[in-house]
């Protein structure tokens, strides 16, 4: 060890403080969900679970939850297909424009969300509108799927890099055609990576607010409902409950995904925007 004893103690203290900083707001919001009062004063004087039942029976919340689930499932399904296809092409072929594919997959999440959102909004109004397609669940799903592709893609690529290409060759050599090789060799190899990627895509879509604001029109997802309801002080207690719920719904799949990807995959398959630069290619 090169670090001195004092240094190591200081570092440990710093690490603990930083972790506390990261978790402070999450704990605060969790506590507020149990606040009996409508006002958001600290410290909380009376605890209760009454707002959980109010939130659960709120028709707007229920609609928003339904929309969020449909959007997340739809976007994940599309992203799974597109991301897997792209990863197979890029990992198993060398071709001119290979880096462009990686770049194109990453760009939707690398550019500021407001740009993607505004671009989609302009397209929905100017191009889809005249075709009779308006804002709604479909446009939400299409937008989400576009930036979810990268999560699937990165997980799949990382896994393919770790599995030897000679496995595919061995399978073909032993008499398996492409479909058999995909079914018996590639898919089992990629399964956990795809599952992890799918869970991350689900969480990403379920959480998304920046782009969704521009594509949702009158439809509300849960985050959009929160965003809209923040302006109504009387509804803060319900917002607190929904906020806690949203945190849990995205954190649990992510936790499972990190376990699936394996701890070695955690840094290599850093999700969300970190995945972005992980593969930013040289132009």
């Amino acid at each position: 060890m090169v670090e001195s004893r004092l240094m190591r103690i200081l570092l440990r203290g710093g690490a603990v403080l930083t972790l506390a900083f990261i978790y402070l707001p999450l704990f605060v919001i969790a506590l507020y969900a149990f606040n009996r009062n409508v006002t958001q004063a600290w410290p909380i004087e009376n605890y209760s679970t009454r707002w959980f039942s109010v939130a659960f029976h709120d028709p707007d919340v229920r609609d928003a939850l339904r929309n969020s689930l449909i959007a997340a499932v739809g976007a994940t399904a599309i992203a799974l297909v597109l991301g897997t296809l792209a990863s197979l092409a890029v990992s198993r072929y060398r071709f001119f424009g290979r880096e462009v594919i990686t770049f194109a997959v990453i760009l939707p999440i690398a550019l500021p969300g407001i740009v993607t959102g505004l671009a989609l909004q302009a397209t929905i109004i100017d191009v889809l509108g005249p075709l009779g397609i308006g804002f709604g669940l479909t446009t939400i799903i299409v937008g989400h799927a576009t930036f979810c592709i990268v999560v699937i893609y990165n997980n799949a690529i990382a896994r393919m890099r770790r599995t030897s290409g000679s496995l595919d060759e061995a399978s073909a050599d032993l008499g398996a055609d492409n479909w058999q090789t995909f079914r018996y060799v590639m898919l089992p190899q990629m399964r956990t990576a795809l599952l992890a990627g799918g869970l991350l895509a689900f969480a990403l879509s379920f959480d998304e607010v920046i782009v969704t604001v521009f594509t949702s029109g009158a439809e509300q997802t849960l985050p959009i409902w929160i965003f809209a309801t923040l302006a109504r002080p009387d509804d803060q207690p319900i917002v607190n409950v929904v906020a806690l719920f949203v945190i849990l719904v995205s954190i649990i799949p992510v936790y499972i995904a990190t376990r699936l990807a394996g701890s070695s995959g955690l840094t290599a398959e850093r999700p969300k925007r970190s995945a972005v630069a992980a593969n930013v290619p040289a132009p």
Binding site: I22, P25, L204
Partner: peptide, 20 residues
């Protein structure tokens, strides 16, 4: 620690801003 740092990254960003 990696998991502890990674997981809150995914907690809804709007909710985190709202908590602050």
């Amino acid at each position: 620690l990696v998991v502890l740092i990674l997981v809150p990254l995914w907690a809804n960003y709007l909710v985190k801003a709202y908590a602050w």
